[in-house]
Design a protein around this nucleic acid. Structure first.
Length: 479
RNA sequence: GGCCCCAUCGACUAACGGUUAGGUCACCACCCUUUCAAGGUGGCAGUACGGGUUCGAAUCCCGUUGGGGUCACCA
């Protein structure tokens, strides 16, 4: 059997990191099995549409390294993959359900439905469409139903859920799921505006696109019985289902805004590496081995196994993401870092920096930051005169080096400018004067970087060059 | 509340029914050291609870408790 999976987001805003993980698992599963990964845009709710959201999903997934073999832009054998462009497909299918007795017409207004729910709530009954008391094909009779339809009365088509028995299906992550039919609602399949609801469009599309495995978030588990009923109503073979554990806030509720960033865009904007984010996300709910944390996308593809996906939700721990990003930062090639750093420098007004120099600075400072994007501020002094000087640091060490000592040192600074020569020069100077390193290193660091923290001073000085260092030291010598 | 799902260190997780319950993040200590990191070493810390089944249970079964999801003409 050919594996065909799909990622089917609704274009109602930014891509959620939970959505990205779902997309990732679909992608890993497809690639692992040499199958096809489809992107389908589920935009049947025209009221919630956000302009450009779908294109943004594609863009963000591409940034993340997730590829779609068939998508709205790529098309494919079964395209288009935008549901609002496929509306004419769903209506005949709803019709088929009507004919086979798996669905029925209903004419209730929003007010009537509200009243019904209120009534049931008061009576302490579970709110669920009451087929026997509302205005539908069954209570009205066929004749009245046809009259209303001919009179263009607003109508919907609802799923006819059996009154008794149970609905069961197998989930690849959770095993057998059994739900009493009496607990399943007669959901609307075709809305009065003629658009299908999620349930109908989803099932019809999954079937027509020959989706073999539906891999989606656990929040869809409760509606899966309806989907199973739809497959039965159509006489179709349902796909395999795999419901992924949810991503959680620290308080264990479903990951949401309010408790931190949830948009992939946010992490991208902050400067997280896409491969680090993906690596981190992949390990939330799945673990290929017991003793490693860092995996390349290719490794993940070759090791991915739905059977090893966890059932319990996973807390999104930003600390671990930060650690992972820092780990990636320390392992990336100097060229890659330089290239990535340039635009970040531009953003801070540092123009004309060569990628060679940017690379060197990145390597110099990468062990001290979590994000590459911190370097323009953390290491501003590598690109311009320090914007400000840490006064507390200066005051703490002010008594250590006298002006005359610094003047004397400047005169001895080597012409052959390197970390080693600087180290040797300073140390022999200290020996000659009989003073400790701290007496000179802190005043120098302050003068050259303005900051109390940073990389090794001699390495920093080597990169900065003789002229800049001498000038900065002179500028900080009190008159 | 109904229904469904879930339950190993604070977090992510590993463990054919037989392990001193392992690794990673975080945290703590020490080492290294020119500040801060990084790195190294060590440490703290867990099978929710109660019953079964079994020679033997984190693992299988039942219950309890706890947590979560979901109950729209949204997806």
């Amino acid at each position: 059997m050919t594996v065909r999976v799909r990622f089917a987001p609704s274009p109602t805003g930014y891509l959620h990191v939970g959505g990205l993980r779902t997309a990732l698992y679909n992608f890993l599963f497809a690639r692992h099995h040499g199958g096809v990964n489809v992107l389908r845009i589920e935009d049947t709710d025209q009221t919630r549409l956000v302009e450009g959201a779908a294109q943004n999903f594609i863009e963000v997934c591409r940034w993340s390294g997730i590829e779609f073999d068939e998508s709205p832009e790529k098309g494919g054998n079964y395209g288009p993959y935008v549901q609002s462009e496929r509306t004419e497909i769903y209506r005949p299918h709803a019709q088929k359900l009507l004919e086979s007795g798996a669905a029925y017409y209903a004419f209730d207004s929003a007010e009537e439905l509200d009243a019904m729910r209120e009534r049931m709530q008061k009576a302490g009954i579970v709110a669920k469409y009451d087929r026997s008391s509302m205005r539908n094909q069954y209570t009205l009779g066929d004749e009245e139903t046809h009259r209303l339809i001919n009179a263009n009365t607003p109508k919907v088509i609802r799923l006819k859920v059996p009154l008794t028995g149970e609905i069961r299906f197998r989930d690849l992550v959770r095993g057998d799921i059994i739900v009493p039919a009496r607990d399943v609602d007669d959901s609307v399949l075709l809305k009065s505006d003629g658009f299908p609801t999620y349930h109908l469009a989803n099932v019809v599309d999954d079937h027509l696109m020959e989706i073999s495995h539906v891999i989606r978030g656990e929040e869809w588990l409760p509606s899966t019985p309806k989907h199973v009923l739809l497959y039965q109503g159509f006489g179709w073979q349902p796909p395999e289902f795999a419901h992924l554990p949810l991503l959680l806030n620290p308080d264990k509720s479903k990951l949401s805004k309010r408790q931190g960033d949830v948009a992939v865009e946010d992490y991208r904007a902050k400067g997280y590496f896409s491969d680090a984010l993906i690596n981190f996300l992949a390990l939330l709910g799945w673990n290929p081995t017991a003793d490693r944390e860092i995996f390349s996308l290719d490794e993940m593809i070759s090791m991915f196994d739905l059977k090893k996906v966890n059932k319990a939700g996973a807390v999104f721990d930003i600390k671990k993401l930060e650690w992972m990003n820092a780990a990636y930062l320390r392992s990336k090639s100097v060229e890659e870092l330089g290239e990535a750093l340039i635009p970040m420098l531009e953003e801070h007004g540092f123009h004309g920096i060569t990628s060679e120099y940017a690379s060197k600075v990145a390597v110099l400072l990468r062990e001290r930051v979590t994000l590459l994007s911190e370097i323009p501020t953390f290491g501003d002094y590598m690109f311009s005169t320090p914007a400000e000087f840490d006064d507390a640091y200066r005051i703490k060490h002010r008594t250590l080096a006298t002006s005359s000592l610094l003047v004397e040192l400047i005169a001895k600074l080597p012409n052959e400018w390197s970390q080693k020569s600087l180290h040797d020069t300073v140390h022999s100077f200290l020996e000659e004067k009989g003073i400790a390193l701290k007496n000179i290193i802190h005043p120098l660091r302050h003068a050259i970087t303005g900051k109390s923290v940073g990389a090794g001073l001699f390495e920093t000085m080597e990169l900065l060059g003789r002229d800049i260092c001498v000038e900065r030291i002179k500028n900080q010598i009190p008159d």
